[in-house]
Computed example of a mutant assay.
Amino acid sequence: MATQYFDDYVIGAERKTHGRTITETDFVVHAGHSGDFFPHHMDEEFAKTTPFGRRIAHGTMVFTIGVGLTASEINPAAFTYGYDRMRFVKPVFIGDTIHTLLTIAEKSGDPKRPNVGRVVERGQVLNQKGETVLVFDHILMVERGIPAVV
């Protein structure tokens, strides 16, 4: 990705990632890293008694993988300020393939730093059926600079 400065971002611009299939290994590794061994994720027999009828992916794992998919392009003039408005909309199961769609939703100045602006990317993680499984806002601090020549 070429360097994009604050003024280069366009409201409504979209970027879609490639897909990633969720595996049993993802469940086990994420449980080990996070310490979340809740039976909803790890116990197939227990999960059969839930409304979903099978194990569901950790929401934090779906977020981590969904955001990780977006890291294929790095803008040296931007850095993450944080995430807001995250919701786990639908469950993700072993065998589901997810991808992330980012849409530039907002731009504003930064009240503390005149040399940067804030850009909000609205993220949607979607499954192979096109259903939204997770939503979030990713806030970027982006340098103001000379806009790219188009």
Rank of each mutant, 00 (worst) to 15 (best):
G32E: 09
V10Y: 09
L69Y: 02
L101T: 05
E14F: 12
T70W: 05
K129Y: 13
V89M: 04
K16I: 15
R54N: 07
V10H: 08
F63E: 06
R85C: 07
E121V: 08
T103L: 07
P51H: 10
A78G: 02
K90F: 09
P147G: 00
V125S: 09
G12E: 00
T64V: 15
L126H: 00
Y5K: 01
D110K: 13
A13L: 10
F88M: 03
F88L: 07
F46G: 13
E131W: 03
T21V: 14
T50M: 07
M42Q: 06
R54M: 03
A148N: 14
T64D: 12
T50C: 08
V149M: 13
M61C: 09
N75H: 02
I139G: 04
E121A: 14
R15G: 11
R55Y: 01
Y5C: 03
K48V: 03
H99M: 03
R87I: 05
E131G: 09
F27K: 10
D26W: 06
V92N: 00
H40A: 14
M61K: 07
V150F: 15
Q4M: 14
V10P: 02
I74P: 12
V133A: 06
K16N: 13
G53I: 08
H138V: 10
V116Q: 00
T132V: 15
G59S: 03
V133E: 06
M61I: 03
H99I: 11
R113N: 13
G68D: 02
